[in-house]
């Protein structure tokens, strides 16, 4: 077989947003200050980057149909629920914990395990008395929520 190289899409924003795709599945996404070269060869990735650009312009885009992977069964269960939170809406760690019958801290751990921020919108999970943490930095979380018109 040809040597599979992951595809990489990059969207300019306050920080650059990068997503890596292999065989039509988004495997990883992250924010970076560096310029990253794009490698796109599938229609899937072309379509995805268009949607991401719309999203980072502040338009309502739903990524629920995008195939992703979850690191563990537990985090997958929690992150599936998080995918159900719509653009511009938030839920609390506590609220999600009640739904999965676990603790808010465990929900926080599952959020940290999310390999694909933005695509799986873990930034829409916040504390009851504040914004909560974010592995890419709370500043990024605040900017994402502002982008979606959420008042914290």
């Amino acid at each position: 077989m040809p040597t599979q190289i992951p595809e990489r899409v990059c969207v300019e924003w306050h920080l650059n947003f990068v997503a890596e795709i292999r065989n039509g599945v988004v495997e990883r996404s992250y924010f970076t200050e560096r310029d990253v070269e794009e490698t796109i060869f599938s229609e899937f990735s072309e379509e995805l980057v268009k949607r991401l650009r719309r999203y980072f312009k502040g338009r309502e885009v739903d990524f629920r149909d995008v195939p992703v992977t979850y690191p563990t069964d537990f985090s997958g269960r929690v992150l599936e629920i998080v995918r159900g939170i719509s653009f511009g809406k938030v839920r609390s760690y506590f609220d999600i914990a009640n739904e999965v019958k676990t603790s808010p801290r465990a929900v926080g751990v599952a959020m940290k395990m999310n390999r694909v921020p933005v695509i799986v919108p873990c930034h829409r999970v916040v504390a009851r008395n504040g914004i909560g943490g974010y592995s890419c930095g709370v500043g990024v979380k605040r900017m994402l929520l502002e982008l979606e018109g959420v008042k914290m």
Binding site: M1, P2, Q4, I5, E7, N23, G24, V25, F41, S42, F44, S45, P67
Partner: peptide
């Protein structure tokens, strides 16, 4: 249905058809 296989053969001027079974095969 492999994006890279499709890309390489198209660049080489081959006609490439996608099969109906998508993704599952991987």
């Amino acid at each position: 249905n492999n994006p890279l296989v499709i890309r390489l053969f198209r660049e080489a001027g081959f006609e490439v058809k996608k099969t109906k079974m998508i993704n599952r095969i991987y």
